[in-house]
Design a protein around this nucleic acid. Structure first.
Lengths: 164, 164
DNA sequence: CATTTATTTCAAAAAATCTTGAAACTACGT
DNA sequence: ACGTAGTTTCAAGATTTTTTGAAATAAATG
């Protein structure tokens, strides 16, 4: 037998931290398990293994594995090498600014790209519409176009305004 | 019989506009029907009635009623009086900046308030933890506190940075 | 005030999403 | 190459969220 058995159960400090992150991820429309996993990794003084997550949070290994993967793709956590251990251990990214931009990039970027073509097409359709309505359509489509541009600036906006 | 029968079906311009808004609301984790409803109201040159939404979007009256209510609470649409008509008619709020802040206010504000107390409690727990870990906990909790403060600034940040 | 028209409500159905667990896969140690 | 520990995958199950439609409510009309 290698490595120590992970603690079981959660301290009050741990479970309340987790509760906070669960609320945050749910607010953003992400699954609760992501909040649990990140929350525990965030508060623990030492890197956490998947086994520990499964035991202490009482989630399935499937959930843990998928949750960890998603957190890795957001770069919300990273793998850390622990000498003499076979398991993977995880540490949190604790700079929320980075976290937020990674998240927005991943979620927003693809939509923005799709959206651009769509708006161009709208323009064409508006020009082909009856004169009485054409001006109205141009107007609304322009506003949409501006919204789109703004969306593209959200990440930089957050980085600039929010200096923490 | 009073009032004209609403058009049935959707023009290409209409359905593509709707598609854009559906994608946006889904991105934000809101139900698709909200995007459909707002999308049609947004693109139409004239105020739209619930009946028209039901017929042209092919959604149930229940959905339409609930969707309209939610959009009203976000102030994404408003009721407009149409002389000689009994039905309610709706026009869109087309200033997305307002829309975004209303939305964030409604969604974020309550969570932020809950969160504050929670973080205070975390502090207390950290102070009661073993010395070896106390400093670590203080650190993480402080970062959380900063995240919280940032969240509270998001609406103003958007308003300031994004001048459209 | 009865009737018709418009809107809301809400329990049940449908759809979408999240979680589970067992099997497949990987890679390391012997 | 075999066995074991660790992780990933994915179909089935559980849960949550959204949608529906019918009944209740409201509000204007004759």
């Amino acid at each position: 037998m290698s490595g120590s058995t992970p603690k079981s159960g959660l301290s009050e400090l741990e479970s309340e931290t987790i509760a906070i992150f669960v609320r945050i991820v749910q607010l953003v429309g992400l699954p609760k398990s992501l909040g649990q996993i990140y929350g525990l990794i965030y508060i623990c003084p030492k890197p956490v293994s998947m086994e520990e997550l499964v035991e202490r949070l009482g989630i399935s290994i499937g959930s843990a594995s998928q949750g960890l993967r998603q957190l890795r793709t957001f770069k919300a956590i990273s793998t850390v090498y622990v000498p003499g251990e076979r398991k993977d251990y995880y540490t949190p990214e604790t700079e929320f600014r980075k976290l937020i931009s990674n998240f927005l990039d991943d979620q927003l970027r693809p939509h923005l790209e799709t959206g651009n073509g769509a708006i161009e097409h709208l323009n064409a359709l508006a020009e082909a519409s009856p004169v009485e309505e054409r001006e109205h359509y141009r107007n609304r489509i322009n506003k949409l176009k501006r919204l789109h541009k703004i969306a593209g600036n959200i990440t930089p906006a957050i980085s600039k305004f929010v200096n923490f």
